[in-house]
Simulated scan of single mutants.
Amino acid sequence: MFQLGKTIVSEEIIGNDFVCNLSACKGACCVKGDAGAPLEVAETQILKDIFPKVKPFLRKEGLKAIAEQGVFTTNDFGEHETPLINGEDCAYVIYDRKGTALCGIEEAYNQGAITWKKPVSCHLYPIRVKDYTEFSAVNYEKWHICDPACALGEELQVPVYKFVKQALIRKFGEDWYNELEVLASKT
């Protein structure tokens, strides 16, 4: 771990390789697990505001889950998350013709219906950020469903932090990312 501004960063984001391999995993990170995607407080209002424009991109099962649970949920720890369909798929998941899970929010963004790409936690994946009072912890979340992404990243020699460059800049700013690159070059 090392400190960068008001963040404590795991060296694993520099030392591990990663490139999403959707043809292998089929977007499993959006349909596996026991919770929805983490949301920042400001993102809950964004979801409320954009939902009418995202709605046409979603599946009927997702729309039903959102109608029942809301555009976001709050867990027992007071953390906000995307709702789930029957405890599995994120309610915002859509599928392409090959059965790959994609983000309906991101599809609305790609089609020009909205200007917000998707929750930053999704954009950052496989990096997870936990905010504390004095700092944010920036960690690499290794999950067996991403083994094909690790293999592809190793083959292409792309470290985790480079794979999620745009998301890290979105979250922490360009200066922070440039400092990260300098530190990474020294390891």
Rank of each mutant, 00 (worst) to 15 (best):
L152A: 09
P52E: 03
L168T: 05
V93K: 15
V138C: 00
L58D: 08
L124P: 00
R128M: 07
T82I: 06
D147K: 13
K165H: 12
I46W: 00
T44Y: 07
G33T: 01
T115R: 08
Y140F: 15
Y161L: 08
Q111A: 15
E106F: 04
I127R: 09
Y92F: 15
E154Q: 14
I46P: 00
P83D: 13
V138T: 04
G173A: 12
T100F: 03
C90W: 10
E61A: 15
E88S: 14
E134M: 14
Q111F: 00
L124K: 02
V164F: 02
F51C: 06
E81H: 15
P159M: 10
Q111N: 13
Y109H: 10
Q111K: 15
A65S: 03
A137L: 13
L47K: 10
I127Q: 01
C90V: 15
T133F: 15
K171H: 00
V120A: 13
E154Y: 13
G36V: 07
K171N: 09
Q69E: 10
C150N: 04
W116T: 01
W143Y: 07
E81K: 12
H144N: 11
E155G: 00
L152R: 09
F57Y: 06
T133L: 05
A91S: 15
P126K: 15
A151T: 05
D49A: 14
R128D: 05
R128Q: 12
V129M: 04
K130N: 11
E40M: 11
K117F: 01
T44V: 13
Y140P: 12
A37I: 15
A167N: 00
L152T: 08
V160R: 05
E79F: 14
G33V: 00
I46V: 07
L102D: 05
A101M: 05
G33A: 04
G104L: 05
P52A: 04
G87Y: 00
C146L: 01
L156A: 11
A35Y: 06
F57A: 12
T73N: 14
I145N: 10
Y140L: 12
A101V: 00
K98N: 14
V54K: 08
N75L: 06
I145Y: 08
T115A: 08
F57V: 02
Q45C: 04
C150E: 11
T44Q: 09
W143H: 12
F77Y: 10
S121V: 14
G62F: 06
C150S: 09
E134T: 13
Q45S: 08
K171F: 00
L58Q: 08
P38W: 01
D34C: 01
F72D: 01
Y92C: 09
L156H: 10
K55E: 15
C150D: 12
A101I: 01
T74R: 11
N75H: 04
K98M: 03
D34H: 01
E141F: 04
